[in-house]
Structures are given as structure tokens and as C-alpha cells.
């Protein structure tokens, strides 16, 4: 009886020491979970999730302070990936944070722009070039489509233009072959 207890205690002590030692020896700087979550997020930096950017949202998810379904640009696929990473059940997107839209880029109507720089200050990725009293232009390849430049514009000269499919962006679709359609009976 006493031997058993002693053995158990000894095992507990040894494993405890090993754990403690490895916690110091293999310490990982930063928050690797937040990092991994951030890698999944689309980096739109739109703030629709309620956090000022993707990184803060990732950190909130890592801490368990935010749900995984608050990122409309990431869409259902993003939720699925997050669920996979965190080992939880995927859930539908929370509509209070917005719905997914086709990927778009902002476009400034240069006839209307008064060069107020308000949008430049709002852009989270510095994708608008221009200076005071000069026309502003979106750097399309760097625009994430976050729409944060829309509200500050005093003359409403910014519109979101969906990215049209063109040859370089064309994708092969998933082939439709399987059997089920022959039967005409869909299995939901």
C-alpha cells in the first residue's frame, strides 16, 4: 500500500520535473496559436469581426474571447479551417458581423475626389496613394477590399468594384461526373 503510494508520488514528481524542465527548455516565444489563426485569416483588416484588424481577432480567438465565425471575408471555408485548427465543430457565419461578398477592390472616381486624404488615413494597408489636394488612387493589387475607406469619404467618390473573372484568374471547376445526377435523385 505504502509502496504503491510512494511509487505514484515518485512518478508524479518525476513527470512534474520533466514537464517543468521542458516548459523552460522548449519555451516558444509569442503565441503560436494566435499566429496560426492569423495565418488562416484573410488579412482583409476590415474589422467586421469587431476587432481592429486580423491580428487582434486572432489573439482574441486564441484566448477564447471571440468565436470563430465572425470573419465574413474568410467565409465558410475560413470557419472550417479555424474549426479544424482548434478542434471544434464548424458553425455557420455569424450574420451580425456581415455576409461574405464577392472579392472586390475599391475604386476612386477621380472626377469627384477632392483630395481630402481621409481615405488614405483609413486604409489599413496603405493601398491608397495621393497627397492633400491631389487626386487619390487605389493601388488595386494591394487593396484587400475591406471597405474601410468608404465611410470617411466626404464626397462618396469610392465604390467597390467586384473582381471580374479574366483569363489569368480563370480556374478549372470541380468536374461534375458522378453517378448521382444520372439517377436524378439528390442526396441532401
Amino acid at each position: 500500500m505504502i509502496t504503491a503510494i510512494l511509487v505514484m508520488v515518485a512518478i508524479a514528481v518525476v513527470t512534474g520535473l520533466v514537464l517543468g524542465w521542458s516548459a523552460i527548455r522548449f519555451k516558444v516565444e509569442g503565441n503560436p496559436l494566435a499566429e496560426k489563426i492569423d495565418a488562416i485569416l484573410p488579412q482583409t483588416q476590415c474589422g467586421q469581426c469587431g476587432f481592429p484588424g486580423c491580428r487582434p481577432y486572432a489573439e482574441a480567438i486564441a484566448k477564447g474571447e471571440a468565436d470563430i465565425n465572425q470573419c465574413p471575408p474568410g467565409g465558410e471555408e475560413g470557419v472550417k479551417k479555424l474549426a479544424e485548427l482548434l478542434g471544434v465543430e464548424p458553425k455557420p457565419l455569424d450574420e451580425t458581423h456581415g455576409t461574405p461578398k464577392p472579392k472586390s477592390v475599391a475604386f476612386i472616381d477621380e472626377q469627384t475626389c477632392i483630395g481630402c486624404t481621409l481615405c488614405i488615413q483609413a486604409c489599413p494597408v496603405d493601398a491608397i496613394s495621393g497627397a492633400a489636394k491631389q487626386m487619390h488612387t487605389i493601388i488595386a493589387v494591394e487593396c484587400t477590399g475591406c471597405e474601410l475607406c468608404l465611410p470617411p469619404c466626404p464626397v462618396d467618390c469610392i465604390t467597390m468594384v467586384p473582381i471580374a473573372e479574366d483569363l489569368p484568374h480563370w480556374k478549372w471547376k470541380h468536374p461534375v461526373v458522378m453517378l448521382k445526377q444520372v439517377s436524378g435523385e439528390a442526396r441532401a
Partner: peptide, 8 residues
């Protein structure tokens, strides 16, 4: 039962 066409 599984909703597949029988013939093929």
C-alpha cells in the same frame, strides 16, 4: 435505397 441508378 442509396439513390443510385440501377442499370449501369
Amino acid at each position: 435505397a442509396r439513390g443510385y441508378p440501377a442499370k449501369p
